[in-house]
Design a protein around this nucleic acid. Sequence first.
DNA 1: GGATTTTATGAAAACATTTGCATTACTATT
DNA 2: AATAGTAATGCAAATGTTTTCATAAAATCC
Lengths: 329, 329
Amino acid sequence: MAVAKAARVSPSTVSRSFNHPGLVSPATRKRITRAVEKLGYIRNRAAQSMHGRRNATIGLIVPTIDHAIFAEVIQSFSDSIDRAGFTLLIASHSYDLDREYAMMRKLMEHRVDGIALVGFEHSDASLRLLEQQGTPAMALWNYAPDSLLPCVGADNREAGRIAADHLLGFGHRDIGLVFPRPDGNDRASARLWGARDRLSAAGVPLIADWQWEASYSIAQAKQVAQDLLRRAHRPTALLCGNDVIAQGVIYGAQSCGLRVPEDISVIGIGDFKGSAEMEPGLTTIRIPARSIGEIAGERFTDLITGASEDHFRICCPLECIVRGTARPL
Amino acid sequence: MAVAKAARVSPSTVSRSFNHPGLVSPATRKRITRAVEKLGYIRNRAAQSMHGRRNATIGLIVPTIDHAIFAEVIQSFSDSIDRAGFTLLIASHSYDLDREYAMMRKLMEHRVDGIALVGFEHSDASLRLLEQQGTPAMALWNYAPDSLLPCVGADNREAGRIAADHLLGFGHRDIGLVFPRPDGNDRASARLWGARDRLSAAGVPLIADWQWEASYSIAQAKQVAQDLLRRAHRPTALLCGNDVIAQGVIYGAQSCGLRVPEDISVIGIGDFKGSAEMEPGLTTIRIPARSIGEIAGERFTDLITGASEDHFRICCPLECIVRGTARPL
DNA sequence: GGATTTTATGAAAACATTTGCATTACTATT
DNA sequence: AATAGTAATGCAAATGTTTTCATAAAATCC
């Protein structure tokens, strides 16, 4: 900080004038400010963090950035922590829990003030690492009343149930399920279990032949739909693990000459950007990504700065958005 | 580093064993490694960076994360620099150049090793700041043969031209243009100029009434399309500034009872995720987001580590993807 | 107007790491 | 066997900032 010492004060005073402006006289403060501007000084957060001081940096590890729903939550989380003066360090692991561990280490090398993860399913090593390093952590996107980590998210099991309910309410009994692979993805598996629960409870048999797998890609879902809809005996409704799959399924149906919802009903989960504007609009269970990101950012920065203490667990409400892709039998 | 000194060596040796493993004998190296594992030591990148040493951190400033096309390029850029051992610090400015400047300062406080920006349009203050701080910088997404910053991207003007060409080649003369606001967004404005150039060159008059503005949102584009298509005299083809707008426009047309491409042709720019799978598939100009991000990451890390010196300017080729939404008159 | 409190500032230690220089202990070379 | 050369390590200084403690100056009190 020899630089701003050109204001003829000691480094200590410069530091104070940044962090506790009240402690330095207006005159010197002005002199420092002028020197800072003149020299184009930018303070060094790295050097700060060496004193156990905060870095003003939060690490976020997501399965992938390149997916509508995560993009939305990343954006709002980023905006939210930005308001509290924090910057986002981001890493993705492509649904690979070992890579998640590696990313966590990487973020820790940068001494982030906290790490936000997606969901509850993490390797033991990761959890141990967090514990051992004492890094504040939270889970985004999922909610559970008894979660180990503080969390802000929705109840995915409930989402599956609501979707199933909606279809059942319309009198559907022949319901097919199209979901992403459940391993390493507790969102998908919770939704799947929720849906199955509700269907079983209603006495609807789960036909093994009507359970399909599609990853998070429109193309693959479209393919799956094309395969399944060409069969002789097909469901009257399709419950999809997320809106991307639902969109793919609808395109697949259309390309087979089937009309949605006249020939087949489709319901998604998520309410991603664009789902409302489709023709017909996608009936889906809305997961409020924007507010999840925003609330998570607020709560997490509060927790980090010590503004609040508690182990928060916040459940963001789901909503069944009735549009045009599902209709009564 | 008193911690790993439990391996009975000096801090210097530990540091060397991390950064120049060749300089320390295999025996001690092993001893150090064991101690590191036992104590769960994670090295402190912040402390490194205080020696003018690199941070292994790259800052990326995008207009928004929450947009298919940026999400894709962010993802591939992130993966690419990750391979070189770097981590991504991300910030977004919502198409506000003053906020971009603020974000740049924020990233500089963290002493990032380099800053990647989207496009060429930046405030003078931002450019001056980069210059003054000597931070390596690059432009993502755009290409220009004479760009100030090193760049990896596509020629957006050319994209507009190709799109116009495709429509002209199909015999269309009554062509409407739907674009995002061009200010602070040189991608959009370059495309718009490219398209207009080509249309003028072909002797097609630009009807003021057929130039519409829609931001990057399906909903708004849908609205615009609904308004314009209800008029008596309407174009036979719509050239859209990007695929999101094109998608919105198509939904808008469908909701007005018009069929695409029978009643109206639509062409987009970008080839975003999902454009291929629509029904009908969206005819568009493909901008190779994945390879832009990947190449940019490679070149930029090379430049930062000093592996290569040159002021790179890389033009990624565009491609006209002919699908089903545009057809000959 | 001296004693006491308050306010403003500086000096120095601390943080975790890197690096140039010095040192020690070997290994070749003659 | 002596010399030069090399390999492995340590010492100490340096990095930019914060913080504790000390000091100096000014303001307040009776």
